[in-house]
């Protein structure tokens, strides 16, 4: 019996998310009185794999099969399912990111396992297995019972704090039985976003809405983001107007983000916008209308003109950095 966690790597390195899910798996394993085991796919140096041991992982099963060079949901599912079987996984944990969202449902069918996606806390009980998740775009929480022998969870980003729990970790190489299964996906071009913090990874997001008035006014917002190591985002009308690129739009029909702090500047706080940002730990709103609905979702607010306030925030962060 075990708790198995799929820890994805990015060009051979783990990220904060990987350690979050490792921490989560270790805690869940404790609840189930079993061991947490991580799966790594791709070329990751032993030193890097060992880092998972800092967060309570006892064994890492490492797969370096060439067939798995590019992400293919069908092939990855086969590999992970084989390991889950071999390790008698009781619960399989994945990150609720692009890759985890693609794999978890496939694994659910292959392992005949019930799934609960985007969970943000540990189960309230393991027998019966009952766990909560946010539904209706954050307007309610559901309590769900997973009734199958094996269960699958995907963990929402930034929902639990990383905790160190050093373990001596065993690294085991594994070659899944791929048979004649091979990827039919032909990748022509991969465009990695470099030098910029990814919106879905960011701890801090600085986002602008129609209250920014025009694309010409974005310089102080970008400067603030830069100083805070934050990603930039926007509301839908802003990307529809072409003031900002489409990748930046958050909300029900855009990206769903859950940073530690989300700065909503000149954003009214429409339900469809909040649907994509309501899981943020803190929302900071800057809006010249004191009755804007965004203040109902925010923990901190300033009622005022964004054009005046933004430069002052930039100054304040500069001062903070130089002190």
């Amino acid at each position: 019996m075990s708790v198995v966690v799929f820890t994805e790597n990015w060009d051979g390195a783990f990220k904060k998310q990987s350690f979050e899910i490792a921490t989560y798996a270790a805690k869940l394993a404790e609840m189930l009185q079993t061991d947490p085991i991580a799966i790594s796919i791709g070329n990751v140096a032993e030193e890097e794999l060992k880092k998972l041991g800092n967060y309570g992982i006892k064994k890492v099963v490492s797969v370096t099969d060439d067939k798995l060079k590019h992400f293919d949901g069908q092939l990855y599912t086969k590999a992970i399912a084989d390991i889950a079987g071999k390790e008698s996984a009781k619960v399989l944990v994945l990150a609720n990111n692009n890759c985890g969202k693609a794999l978890a449902p496939r694994l659910s069918v292959r392992l005949k396992a019930a799934i609960c996606s985007a969970v943000h806390e540990l189960p309230e009980s393991v027998d019966p297995f009952v766990i909560k998740k946010r539904v209706f775009s954050g307007n309610a929480i559901s309590r769900n019972e997973l009734k199958t022998e094996t269960k699958i969870l995907t963990l929402a980003q930034n929902s639990i704090d990383i905790e160190e729990k050093p373990e001596t970790v065993v690294i085991e190489a594994f070659t899944p039985e791929m048979g004649d299964l091979s990827s039919s996906i032909q990748v022509q071009e991969t465009e990695k976003q470099t030098g910029k913090i990814l919106l879905t990874d960011a701890e801090i997001v600085v986002s602008g809405g129609r209250g920014m008035k025009s694309s010409d006014n974005w310089a102080p917002l970008e400067e603030l983001a830069d100083l805070l190591d934050a990603a930039t985002a926007c509301s839908r009308p802003v990307s529809d107007e072409g003031w900002r690129p489409h990748e930046e739009h958050t909300g029900q029909t855009g990206k769903i983000v859950a940073p530690n702090v989300y700065f909503a500047i000149g954003i009214s706080g429409a339900t469809q916008h909040l649907a994509g940002v309501s899981s943020s730990k803190y929302i900071v709103a800057i809006n010249n209308d004191k009755d804007a609905p965004i203040f109902e979702a925010a923990q901190y607010g300033i009622v005022g003109d964004a054009a005046k306030i933004l430069p002052q925030l930039v100054e304040a962060v500069k001062e903070l950095k130089s002190s």
Binding site: S108, K112, A113, A114, I115, C116, V130, K132, R134, V135, G138, N139, A140, I141, S142, R143, N144, E145, L146, K147, T148
Partner: peptide, 10 residues
């Protein structure tokens, strides 16, 4: 495979 027991406010 999964059943919702009940809903709670956020």
């Amino acid at each position: 495979k999964c059943s919702t027991l009940n809903f709670e406010p956020p």
